[in-house]
């Protein structure tokens, strides 16, 4: 995650100059628009989260299955997506296109641990979005009596408390063009929302379809039950 920091200002400026996103305080109290049965993706937060992912996380973590064109799902225009893709150099030296898969990271070895792919990380971890946020903000000094393994860092959210990834988020790691203060906690929340989208791009559509379908079948069930009662009464 620490590598390729030079990409951060370039990409963040390129992405967030488009800046349709408006900041909303989701940290106090901590909440995500994707939470709950009516949840949907906060596109502004997901756009900011993509900037953080691309600037800070992408050097170590892959995002399998996603194409750059899929970023239209978080509210970017095709022109913006094309601009972002063009700024990314693939392994063969050519520029990415909107139809390119997200650039895989180079071979990274974090003290013997391979950084996990983040494409579906929210679906893969108990607690999902909240876990990602808690993990990214969970670094700190190890409690008394805890001996860390060489090359490991204390993280209160990680099972076992020891992780080979260092704390990579810091205040102002990127500059948000929408004026949102890029605190480490804000960056963590934005990345968590972006990874929620990457894990489940159809979240909002699924909930909308679900609500309509449930209403339809609830009404249909009521009509069918009434019809059944009437037919059975008439048949004696």
């Amino acid at each position: 995650m620490m590598r390729h920091r030079f990409l951060a200002p370039l990409l963040a400026a390129g992405l967030l100059a488009c800046g349709a996103a408006r900041a909303e305080n989701t940290l106090t109290p901590l909440h995500f628009q994707s939470d709950g049965w009516r949840g949907s993706i906060d596109k502004a937060a997901a756009q900011r989260g993509f900037a953080v992912y691309q600037s800070v996380c992408a050097s170590c973590h892959g995002m399998s299955g996603l194409h750059y064109r899929d970023l239209e799902g978080i509210g970017l225009t095709p022109e913006q997506v094309a601009g972002i893709a063009a700024s990314i150099k693939l392994a063969d030296g050519s520029a990415a296109t909107p139809d390119s898969l997200f650039k895989p990271p180079g071979a990274v070895n974090m003290g013997g641990a391979v950084p996990p792919d983040l494409g579906a990380i929210v679906a893969q971890r108990p607690g999902g979005t909240r876990y990602v946020y808690e993990f990214l903000t969970g670094f700190g000094p190890a409690p008394d009596g805890m001996t860390l393994l060489p090359g490991h860092f204390y993280n209160r959210a990680f099972p076992g408390g020891q992780v080979s990834m260092p704390n990579v988020l810091r205040d102002n790691a990127v500059t948000y063009a929408d004026g949102t203060k890029a605190s480490a906690a804000q960056e963590a929340a934005d990345v968590a929302e972006f990874l929620t989208w990457s894990s489940d791009p159809d979240l909002a559509e699924r909930h909308i379809i679900g609500l309509r379908t449930v209403i339809f079948f609830a009404l249909l069930a009521m009509v069918a039950l009434a019809a059944k009662r009437r037919i059975w009464r008439e048949e004696g």
Binding site: G210, V214, A221, A224
Partner: peptide, 17 residues
């Protein structure tokens, strides 16, 4: 038919939520 409608309701709830 009524049972199928109820099943579809439960199905939609589980699948979408």
């Amino acid at each position: 038919f009524a049972a199928l409608a109820l099943l579809a309701l439960v199905f939609a709830l589980l699948m979408c939520f």
